[in-house]
Design a protein around this nucleic acid. Structure first.
Lengths: 337, 337
DNA sequence: AGATATATTGGTAACGTTACCATTCGTTAT
DNA sequence: ATAACGAATGGTAACGTTACCAATATATCT
């Protein structure tokens, strides 16, 4: 901290070792055709000076930076951290580094974060969902490098996408609930349904219910961020209705868990009095009792694959054949339905 | 994507608007003393060309980058995502942007990630814990800019720190368990106790137990990463002993929850047959039944304060008076003890 | 009016690195 | 022996921006 002398540069290393700057650069970058003696001289000087390369300067001269811009809504849930974890694992060992931006689910969030992150001239961009503002799309269309959209596979990618089908997910949970004989089925969402993929999932859910002759009883979209508390509050709202539902599908497991705990605290029996289903398939939902019915999504893998795709395109110049990489969701029939 | 023409630069903007490059720069940076006409000309040209500033170039010439390097162990738990969330919130609105690296709890992880991140010439560094390798410390001592260590407040900061006292935490849970009359108290940790702060907490816990005349029965340190499953497996190991514990303190809530679910699945009554306590105070632990006894840590706030400190030092040139910012932990006496 | 301050604009150099081209020197092929 | 080649090294310019200083225009003061 706060020490006066400034960082040694390649020039200093070159001067100390008595070679040219460019030769020093070759050693630092493990370029071919460098003699052993040169290498040793430079490495010794670099060690003596405590030289650290400055990639800012390097990436100004070279074409690309080695930064990957990742834009996610938030870290306050269980989904995106795992995606980021997957991306990072895929990038490990390469020179690529993650720059992270969060939109906090704000309307203009993605757009302004993207604008910020693009000023760092990243080599690739990873963002979530397939729906974006016009300005976001415009900025991305100017962007040279891989753009990977994670989460959703229902639609066209700007460049490439890795995700699961929201429609299949909504449909399969509808079929599950109807097949078990539930007749007054409700839905609870959060975040004001700003991530459009949850809207897609709900619409598919409602459409399938209607097709099966059990149209949705009601859908409540809460404006707050998803949490156990909000799930409980959604549940409470439903229970205050005259015509109470006998099954509820929640936009995610956090909401469903909150509802489950709420029901337990009110001595309601799940699923006898009311059935509950979630979305995501968080680990813990299979350890509690009753085990939550939910849809497992491959969060870590979506991140990992998005990272791998980016890495391949940037470093190996190899583009995947399929632009939309669809992964499978899996209905986990637990004990809450 | 992949469109041939290269990005417009300030030079292009200047040429189109008929002013000098430096004047265009002034407009883009909202510098003072720029006439309205000049501003309008440049802004129009910038909009026409779709100009995006290149901060890589800017931060090469200028002194600082406006990147904050954040190094955390992993995103696969509930602790660090919340810290990152806090940091990001504190940085919102400023020009500072987060570059994220993860060590995956590997021995040399922090060191190599830091080396990587420093090549981006960040304006500040945020990392976790107060224990670091010699090389890490050496690199940081060369670093010009705020260094904030989060999580732990027991010890000396390299530069500044925001955290809670591991010793207080270990001590208070020991007192809690002994005061309730437990006599065969055990401990379960994970990650091979690589984050040294968990070791500190355990040692304080064991020391306090000894002081109170109830020395620890056994401490099991598992090598795997913390998870519900690992907690269950630790619990299982303890139950296979001849002398079974009557209370167990876990290194975190994930482990404790896993153990709780495991006990429930074995029809053991908690806390009658066995008492359980965790560490972190995750939301959901207070919603399940029985509510978990745990120690609440201000995760989001640690991140937020670390972010605010960094921001202040970097942008306002104002250093906080206290170098180690200690936040309070809170024992939550739940129903599992 | 002349002097002085202030607002506005421009020119040049530099940040630290790497791409590109040039040079030297030894080695192999003819 | 000469040509042709490749390995090893060096020189120069450039990446896009901003710091610094200089120059001009305009406003204010005595």
């Amino acid at each position: 901290m706060e020490n006066g002398r400034k960082k040694p540069t390649l020039k200093d290393v070159a001067a100390l070792s008595g070679v040219s700057v460019i030769s020093a650069s070759r050693v630092i970058n493990n370029a071919p055709n460098v003699s052993r003696t040169l290498r040793e001289k430079v490495e010794k000087a670099a060690a003596t000076l405590g030289y650290q390369r400055n990639r800012i300067a390097g990436s100004l001269r070279g074409k690309a930076t080695e930064l990957i811009a990742v834009i996610v809504p938030s870290m306050s849930n269980h989904v995106f951290p795992q995606i980021v974890d997957g991306i990072d694992d895929a990038l490990k060992g390469s020179k690529l580094q993650l720059v992270l931006g969060m939109t906090k689910y704000e309307e203009m969030g993605e757009e302004s974060i993207l604008r910020e992150l693009l000023t760092w001239n990243p080599a690739g961009v990873i963002l979530s969902g397939l729906e974006h503002s016009e300005n976001t799309k415009a900025m991305l269309s100017q962007f040279n490098g891989p753009i990977v959209e994670v989460m959703d596979s229902d639609g066209d990618a700007i460049d490439m996408a890795v995700g699961v089908s929201m429609e299949e997910a909504g449909k399969s949970i509808a079929q599950h609930l109807v097949s078990l004989g539930y007749q007054r089925i409700a839905y609870v969402g959060a975040w004001g349904e700003r991530p459009k993929r949850s809207l897609k999932r709900r619409l598919a859910f409602e459409a399938e219910l209607a097709r099966l002759g059990q149209p949705i009883l009601t859908s409540i979209i809460l404006d707050e961020q998803s949490s156990l508390h909000v799930g409980a509050s959604g549940m409470q709202q439903l229970l205050e209705r005259k015509l109470k539902p006998d099954a509820v599908f929640f936009a995610n497991d956090d909401l469903a868990l909150g509802a489950l705990f709420f029901c337990q605290s009110k001595n309601l029996s799940v699923p006898t009095d009311i059935a509950l289903a979630g979305y995501n398939g968080l680990d813990m939902c299979q350890l509690i009792s009753p085990r939550l019915t939910t849809i497992a999504t491959p969060r870590y893998d979506m991140g990992r694959i998005a990272g791998e795709i980016s890495r391949k395109v940037i470093l190996d110049e190899e583009r995947p054949k399929q632009l939309v990489h669809k992964l499978d969701v899996q209905l986990i029939a637990g004990e809450t339905t």
